[in-house]
């Protein structure tokens, strides 16, 4: 359609009041003298109303959907909040007590242990030949901060899984096999004896990584979490599979129990596992992450 005056381009601005007062006035004066312009203004006004009616209908529909939503749960009032905090504190203390009692209770018996060939055990809980680069710092002698540390300790205990002992056995068996001796001691929950039995195993021994793994577990049971963490870290960093990958999860638990969850080393190890959805400890790492403060 041919527009006969510049006013045709200004109809929309006129209808929404976006013209200057002078332009608005000029348009108003032009309408009686220009019937076609007046018709265009009325048509556009009707189009606006039709469109606005559609927009309004959409808003009404959205409001209807929102009204049919279940009401949001109200946050607890202050009085209730205090009561909830008290209940949570009592539950936490009870949980810690139960956990400690469980730690003193006898372990379920492991699988029967055939003897393996004896080797030279190392004397250090973490053999000297183990890689040292990213080992966690020793914290065994530091007193654990009460609240948070107890929570992490409980979390580590909750997530800890007893190793499958069959994988720790060597191919040979014999009365003097340190692994066999260690397994027998494990059955008796004599974890100090496990560590002692495995000390002579040298780094050159084919059983070395088995002995390392077993020793680190024994240290964990002895609540020497720092030593356990260093042992598992050495295995993880040794990159000898399957020991290394298996140790990735335990080193996290040992560091957590040792109060190292706020360290860069812990975060780095956690992120390493979380970055690999195929990692056997991926789910465990997710659980740990979900329980740590953001």
């Amino acid at each position: 359609m041919e527009n006969k005056s510049p006013f045709y381009d200004q109809i929309e601005a006129f209808l929404t009041g976006r013209l200057t007062p002078a332009e608005q006035d000029a348009m108003r004066k032009a309408l009686p003298d220009d019937p076609e312009l007046a018709r265009e203004v009325e048509l556009r006004r009707l189009e606006f109303d039709v469109s606005e009616s559609l927009i309004a209908e959409n808003i009404r529909q959205q409001m209807q959907r929102l009204r049919s939503e279940p009401p949001p749960e109200k946050p607890p009032e202050k009085k209730n909040l205090v009561a909830l905090i008290l209940i949570a504190a009592v539950l936490l203390i009870t949980a810690i007590g139960v956990y400690r009692r469980q730690q003193r209770a006898p372990e379920p018996p492991p699988a029967p242990a055939p003897a393996t060939s004896p080797t030279n055990p190392a004397t250090d809980p973490v053999p000297a030949a183990a890689p040292q680069a990213t080992h966690p710092p020793a914290r065994d002698n530091k007193p654990a901060p009460a609240g948070q540390q107890n929570r992490y300790l409980a979390l580590a205990a909750e997530l800890y899984q007893n190793p499958v002992f069959e994988t720790l056995r060597g191919p040979a068996s014999g009365a003097a096999d340190p692994l066999e001796t260690a397994l027998a001691a494990w059955q008796k929950q004599d974890y100090a004896a496990v560590v002692t039995a495995l000390q002579p195993v040298a780094a050159t021994d084919p059983q070395y990584w088995r002995a390392m793994t077993f020793t680190a577990h024994a240290q964990f049971k002895l609540k020497r979490f720092g030593q356990a963490a260093r042992g598992f870290a050495a295995i993880a960093d040794g990159k000898i599979q399957p020991w290394a990958e298996d140790a990735d999860g335990y080193v996290l638990l040992a560091m957590l129990a040792d109060g190292q969850s706020d360290t860069a080393a812990f975060r780095a190890r956690l992120e390493k596992v979380l970055a690999d959805p195929g990692h056997p400890w991926f789910d465990l790492a997710g659980k740990i992450q979900s329980r740590l403060p953001k």
Partner: peptide
């Protein structure tokens, strides 16, 4: 509230 929202929205859009 709903009808006010409709009027309010139009007024905002139309300056």
């Amino acid at each position: 509230f709903q009808e006010t929202l409709i009027l309010f929205d139009r007024n905002i859009r139309e300056g």
